[in-house]
């Protein structure tokens, strides 16, 4: 049993210690908003926050996050009120297929939490780990900037 806090709720997880956090979230906790894209931390679709830091959950074994606070895409809104980044995503009509967007949003939130007014270069650097095959990058950039300077 591994203790874990996900979106503020304590869980006792029964899963092999080497199970990546991604599959704990998806298969054990049924939080399917975090996506599998590559399994080797190349695409960013599985990005979650662990103790406030963006982490590729596909390569984070359960044992490595024991006792930690995990935030997923399901946990960033305050009830019915969307996170400002989610709201900006809607206003700029960012998504297309949407599969990568949980990860994109989690990376963007983490960026803005540590750097509320990022430059283009800083956005490039922070978001470079998140692939979008639909090519929504231009609107992601605009949405991040809109949150940065409302």
């Amino acid at each position: 049993m591994t203790k874990l806090y996900v979106n503020g709720t304590e869980h006792e997880i029964e899963a092999a210690a080497d199970t990546p956090l991604l599959w704990v979230l998806r298969d054990v906790l049924k939080l399917a908003g975090t996506k599998y894209g590559c399994g080797i931390a190349q695409c960013g679709s599985c990005t979650v926050h662990v103790d406030g830091t963006p982490v590729r959950s596909c390569i984070a074994p359960l044992a490595s996050v024991a006792g930690k606070q995990v935030t997923t895409i399901e946990g960033v809104a305050e009830g019915e009120t969307l996170h400002p980044v989610q709201q900006a995503w809607l206003e700029h009509d960012v998504v297309q297929c949407g599969y990568c967007q949980s990860g994109q949003i989690m990376s963007a939130i983490a960026l803005l939490e540590r750097n509320p007014d990022p430059s283009d270069a800083e956005i490039d650097e922070a978001m470079a780990g998140n692939i979008c095959r639909c090519g929504t990058y231009q609107r992601i950039r605009k949405a991040i900037k809109a949150v940065a300077s409302p």
Binding site: L31, A32, T34, I73, E74, L90, D93, V95, Q101
Partner: peptide, 20 residues
């Protein structure tokens, strides 16, 4: 704006891989 955006920014959209 896209009709499917709200479920896609909240992680609620069900893709094939998410079917339970």
């Amino acid at each position: 704006r896209r009709i499917d955006a709200p479920e896609k920014v909240t992680g609620k959209a069900v893709f094939g891989i998410d079917v339970e």
